[in-house]
Design a protein around this nucleic acid. Structure first.
Length: 559
RNA sequence: GCGCCAGUAGCUCAGUGGACAGAGCAACGGCCUUCUAAGCCGUGGGUCGAAGGUUCGAUCCCUUCCUGGCGCGCCA
């Protein structure tokens, strides 16, 4: 359904049909068929709503001037009712202006579809697993985790909106040295609390929250720990208790951020079920594993890596890398068509080897790895270093309490993933009233307010009785154009996994609405015009609500 | 040394192989007796890090260099 409303695709079809018809007519040689049809947005309004450089790009193949080709093709496009005029200009651009009738019909269609407007229904939806945050269960979530959470959840929303089936997944690294270290740290804090002699590990977790965990375990499970003899068993027990404590905390923080994971996958389950060894066997059978000095290596140099990577140490323990391959292998075996990972900046060096491993297992390009670049947290102009082990960091929870979910989610998503983000906490809080988020929400609230006022004045609102001729001013036409672009903007953002496109698009819609609102009084004695303006506002409200919904930002009815 | 990301307006950042490079914030000047001024209108502000190359056309692609950040464990 949404597909049919994707204007950009429609324009591309119109151009392709024009070319095909022109060839059939013998107006232009058939070689032109090989040239790609690109549709772009002209920078300037005067160059139309959509343009194609097709004539320019086919000039060489055709051995004719772009202007000549353009003037042959233009008449074939002009006949379509969705297009008002077609112009061929200067170097050879073919510029198309959308007809107002079509924009008006689209506006009514938006109101008809409501919250479904822009959604795509696929015949064969893809099953997609998107894994993000996946912080170690050794402490609270931090600011970088928050960025990954906002971006990952928004990408998931985009993919769902455009017709795929998406599972959000969190990988819990509850296995290995870090977890042991956590257990040790907790044991020492417990000893302190009991007033016993303690020796805190140098490289342990120094954060205050470790004391909270120790206190929690003493209160909840003090009796159980009495029965366990001090040693590896106790550390393991405490570690698993601490992991559960931290995972619970992380889950709560994420839920407060409106992010809910379908799966919380434990690394431990892979080891316990023998999946790690299974994946090693699978790699062996592909001939990409060799032994050296008692270790097992993955020949990742065959996949573009700069050196081969150890899978199994000489003491027989698997590396994290092997477990991670096994984890991705497991996800594939669960039947997903596509995997998306969002990694932190400190893992970008692992991309080549992981993609290589998927390739080696015979799964080609099933995995997409996105890297969320670092977040610099600024407090009063100073960069704050974040380190869990040193216990000095700002948590995601602090952030949410400081600036709220809406502002936080919006700020994280409005920058492209690969740009380093400077996040000034104090500024974000202090200037919240001049925030872009509020600007968008204000547009929505304003419209809701209009409808409330219309109700008290007993305006008979029926979008079907809107009249096109009332929407002839520049501000309203521009607004309708922006509204009509919602489906293609969303699809674009989803396909490219670039949620920040949504924020800039919504900004344009809000701007166009605020301008329209200031230029035109909506509730007047002219009922016909009032209803028409209300219909346009209604369409804006729907697009804003749908867009904000994808961002996980609320669309308030009053502010 | 190698690799990844970035270098665009005072600040934070969008942007595209094409037509005069954009937004938000900051600055300056206007606009509320009428539907929410968390708003609108206007002004100023740029050798798109540098140099070459490919192209009809490059801020965008390629090469080299400079600057900033991060990574370069058989830790996870």
């Amino acid at each position: 359904m949404g597909n049919t409303l994707n204007l950009k695709n429609q324009i591309a079809e119109i151009v392709k049909n024009a070319v095909a018809t022109a060839v059939d007519d013998g107006a232009i040689p058939p070689e032109i068929r090989g040239v790609d049809v690109k549709i772009e947005y002209p920078r300037d309004q005067k160059f139309g709503d959509y343009a194609t450089p097709f004539a320019l790009e086919s000039a060489r193949v055709m051995k004719r001037s772009p202007m000549e080709i353009g003037s042959i093709l233009a008449p074939y496009m002009g006949g379509d009712s969705r297009i008002d005029t077609v112009e061929v200009v200067k170097p050879g651009f073919i510029n198309m202006f959308i007809s107002r009738k079509f924009l008006f019909d689209t506006m009514k269609e938006i109101i008809r579809q409501g919250q479904d407007f822009g959604k795509v229904k696929k015949e064969e939806p893809k099953r997609i697993n998107i894994e993000f945050v996946s912080a170690n269960p050794t402490g609270p979530l931090n600011i970088v985790n928050a960025r990954a959470a906002a971006v990952g959840d928004t990408i998931a929303n985009l993919l769902e909106f455009t017709g795929d089936i998406v599972d959000r997944e969190f990988y819990v690294n509850d296995h290995g040295n870090q977890v042991d270290l956590l257990g040790l740290s907790v044991r020492e804090r417990m000893r302190e609390l009991r007033g016993e002699q303690s020796e805190f590990p140098e490289d342990g977790y120094h954060g205050e929250y470790v004391r909270d965990i120790a206190r929690h375990i003493l209160e909840e499970c003090g009796d159980e720990t009495e029965g366990i003899e001090d040693g590896a068993g106790l550390v393991e027990y405490l570690a698993s208790k601490a992991v559960e404590y931290n995972v619970d905390g992380q889950r709560r923080d994420l839920e407060a951020f409106n992010v809910r994971f379908a799966n919380w996958f434990r690394e431990k389950t892979l080891h316990d079920a023998g999946r790690v060894g299974g994946t090693l066997d699978a790699l062996r059978s592909r001939g990409v594993v060799y032994s050296d000095e008692g270790k097992e290596f993955f020949r990742s140099t065959g996949f573009g890596d700069d050196k081969d990577r150890v899978l199994v140490r000489d003491d027989g323990r698997p590396t994290y890398f092997l477990a991670d391959i096994a984890y991705h292998h497991d996800k594939i075996m669960r039947g997903y068509d596509h995997l998306i990972d969002i990694w932190g900046p400190d893992h970008h060096g692992h991309i080549t080897r992981m993609e290589g491993a998927m390739d080696a297992l015979g799964f080609g390009k099933i995995l997409t790895i996105l890297v969320a670049q670092q977040v610099n947290l600024l407090l009063e102009g100073e960069t704050v270093k974040m380190s869990k082990r040193l216990g000095q960091f700002s948590t995601m929870r602090d952030l949410i309490e400081e600036i709220g979910v809406d502002v936080a989610r919006y700020f994280f998503v409005m920058r492209s993933l690969e740009s380093h983000l400077d996040f000034d906490l104090a500024l974000a809080k202090k200037e919240s009233s001049e925030n872009p988020v509020f600007y968008l929400q204000y547009a929505h609230a304003r419209i809701c307010s209009l409808f409330r006022e219309g109700n008290t004045r007993n305006v008979p609102y029926d979008p079907a009785s809107a009249i096109e001729s009332h929407l002839c001013h520049e501000a309203s036409v521009l607004l309708m154009k922006h509204l009509a672009r919602f489906p293609e903007e969303i699809l674009d953002a989803a396909e490219k996994c670039e949620p920040h496109r949504v924020t800039s698009y919504l900004m344009k819609v809000a701007q166009a609405f605020h301008r329209f609102y200031s230029e035109h009084r909506i509730l007047t004695d002219d009922i016909e015009r009032t209803v028409t303006y209300l219909a346009l506002s209604d369409a804006v409200r729907i697009v804003m609500a749908n867009g904000l919904g994808i961002l996980g930002v609320t669309a308030p009815e009053r502010m």
